[in-house]
């Protein structure tokens, strides 16, 4: 236990890195994912095709490989992005298709009659989506989106394993330095992750319950 208390500043620094990775790439992935989802349902076939291919390719590539691309291949090709931002790019690219799919399945949860009714009232594509479908999809999309963010929190650890000194990276260094207290060191790391993931999970569950009653 002493190891953990002595190294609390290092933990907090790692925790800060994890949080900033989570927040920056979370926001970026939400924006990019929304754009991809909008492309996916748009009337222009080329746009929806491009979005589908993007989703399919990124979802079937392991995160490790995406981050290796950012950490090893990009500098090799001459990019001078600092590691932290390279990790953000990788995490954003990897998370955005999951955001897009969560949004799409939320849209699918709206009964089809709603869209048909809007269309029969003479609404165009933009009006149907923004005034009728999206407001209803929104509430159903929140819990799955929170789940995507929980997954992102856990995925930041891969960036730590490769190159960024966030929580996992700090934990690994400490575990290597304190061979006799590995269990305590790593349990402390786990606790910091749980501080983020469990409240988010409870929030997702509560929102899900609340919205389920309303529909």
């Amino acid at each position: 236990m002493n190891v953990v208390i002595d190294n609390l500043p290092a933990y907090l620094e790692g925790f800060g890195q994890t949080l900033s990775l989570l927040i920056i790439s979370g926001i970026a992935a939400l924006v990019l994912g929304t754009v991809v989802a909008a492309m996916r349902i748009s009337p222009i076939p080329a746009l929806s095709r491009v979005a589908a291919i993007y989703t399919e390719l990124l979802r079937n590539t392991p995160l490790t490989l995406v981050l290796i691309f950012c950490a090893i291949i990009l500098p090799y090709l001459g990019s001078e992005l600092p590691y932290f931002w390279a990790a953000i790019v990788g995490l954003t690219a990897y998370t955005s298709p999951f955001v897009a799919e969560a949004l799409r399945s939320g849209i699918n949860g709206v009964p089809i009659g709603q869209a048909e009714a809007a269309r029969s009232l003479g609404f165009g594509f933009g009006q149907t989506v923004s005034l009728v479908v999206f407001p209803q999809a929104f509430r159903m999309v929140i819990p799955p989106l929170i789940n995507v963010l929980i997954a992102l929190t856990k995925n930041t650890s891969v960036a730590g394993g490769l190159f960024v000194a966030e929580l996992f990276g700090v934990g690994r260094t400490l575990a290597n330095e304190n061979g006799n207290a590995v269990v305590a060191v790593l349990l402390a790391v786990a606790t910091f992750y749980l501080i983020i993931t469990i409240p988010l999970g409870i929030l997702a569950g509560a929102l899900e319950k609340r919205f389920a009653v309303q529909r």
């Binding site: 856990k154 590995v182 786990a190 749980l194 469990i198």
Partner: peptide, 19 residues
């Protein structure tokens, strides 16, 4: 279950490897 679901797999791997 909550514990296992809430922490990264990578951390669990490292834990099993080292502990």
């Amino acid at each position: 279950l909550e514990f296992f679901r809430g922490m990264p797999v990578l951390l669990m791997m490292l834990f099993i490897l080292l502990a």
